[in-house]
Simulated assay, not measured.
Amino acid sequence: MESLLLKARLYRQAWPVIAVIAAVTLSGCESSTAGNNFTPPPQELPVLPVNNTSATTFQEFSATIEGTVNVELRPQVDGYLEKIFVDEGAFVSKGQPLFKINDRSYNETVNNASANVQAAKANVEKAAIEVNRLTPLVQNNVISDVQLKAAQAAYDAAKASLQQAQASGNSAGINLGYTLITAPVSGYIGRIPFKTGSLVGRGEALPLTVISEIKNVYAYFSMSESDFLQFTNQSAGKTVAEKIKSLPPVELQLADKSIYAEKGKIELMEGQFDKNMGTITFRAVFPNEAGILRSGNTGKVRIPHNSGAVLAVPQQATYELQDKVYVFALADSNKVTSKLIHITGRTETYYLVDKGITPGEKIVFTGLDRLRDGVVIKPQELSADSVLKAMPL
């Protein structure tokens, strides 16, 4: 009995402590529940209006560069390469000596042909003397005209032999001249695969070298069938020649992505499509007074197109989903909604758009990775002009 009374007394003494602990526990639970219902404030994101503007876009086509004249030098006679007067990469003028083939045998052939010509001339003179001797005898009926006709035939044969000897002499002289190879045009020397002492000839697969005249250069590029149809539809003029003539000057982007200082002009195109590639080739000419461009260079021909009033959307204000481009537009109550845009062209930093958004509509500029449809934001207004200054078209 005393034990029960003792337990009851201890319970009455501990009850206030238990009540305090329970109150603290309940208070903590209430605070935790209130924390779970807390809504963060809308995130601040920059937005800018999309306005109509004019812009220049470029169609780019891979191109190969060649000199306006590329001449392969090949030997016209056989022999050992005796001298090389120039080095690879050197600039040469028209008529300048380049190579010398050993000419001893050709000199002897010329000397022999010259001797044959002299002998043939002597035979002509001998035959002429015989004709002159027999002519009065026939006229005076001393001998028959048969002898005179025979002498006349011998004279004609001697003249023919002389002509043949002279032709052989001329041929020998031409071959002797071929032993000295000179520059047919002014330009830059290419690779020289032969060295002094090499045996060269007309059957050689490789040329002695290639001379490129690069005061002006050609840039050859190809258009697909769809690009060609777009070109014919958009360019002014009735005929293809008129359309090519109406094209504006074009740019050349070099391999390091820099733009060549001089502008070029598209001159002509091939007469038909390549059946295997489905492309047609065009040629643009660029001035190259400084000699920066060389045959074999590569680059891109850029054809400019001036767009009228279009909507310019910064590329960093867009995102892609399944090969389609979207923006987040600002709607009522500062909610954002995704919109699909239709792109008609592009610059380095902008998309040119004709559908999907309207002039004056505001889009989110940055922070798109943190957004989804219906999210409320706190917009920070940006000026379209300030963005254009920082990011020119």
Rank of each mutant, 00 (worst) to 15 (best):
V47K: 12
T298L: 14
I21R: 14
Y178K: 07
Q380L: 15
D103P: 00
Q147D: 07
Q139P: 01
V336S: 04
I211C: 08
A309T: 01
N170W: 11
P314C: 05
I363Q: 06
N334H: 05
A14R: 01
N141F: 04
R133D: 03
P248Q: 14
A317K: 08
K94W: 02
E262Q: 15
A153E: 09
A19E: 06
K215M: 13
N132Q: 00
E2D: 15
V336D: 07
M391D: 03
K378C: 02
S93Y: 11
I363A: 04
T318S: 12
A312H: 09
N52P: 00
S62L: 11
V376Y: 05
G360S: 13
G79F: 15
M223V: 02
R133L: 03
E225I: 09
L148K: 13
I357V: 11
L98D: 05
Q59M: 12
F221V: 09
N175D: 06
S93K: 13
K265V: 04
I363L: 07
L340W: 01
S383M: 10
D78R: 13
Q147L: 07
G67L: 09
P40A: 04
V47L: 09
Y220C: 00
A236H: 07
E30G: 04
L293N: 07
Q315T: 08
V301W: 07
G79N: 13
V47W: 14
V353R: 11
V327C: 01
F99W: 12
V20S: 12
F91D: 08
P207N: 11
L208P: 07
T39R: 14
N288P: 11
F286N: 12
E88I: 04
I143P: 02
A55Q: 10
I192Q: 08
F91P: 03
S386P: 05
V124K: 02
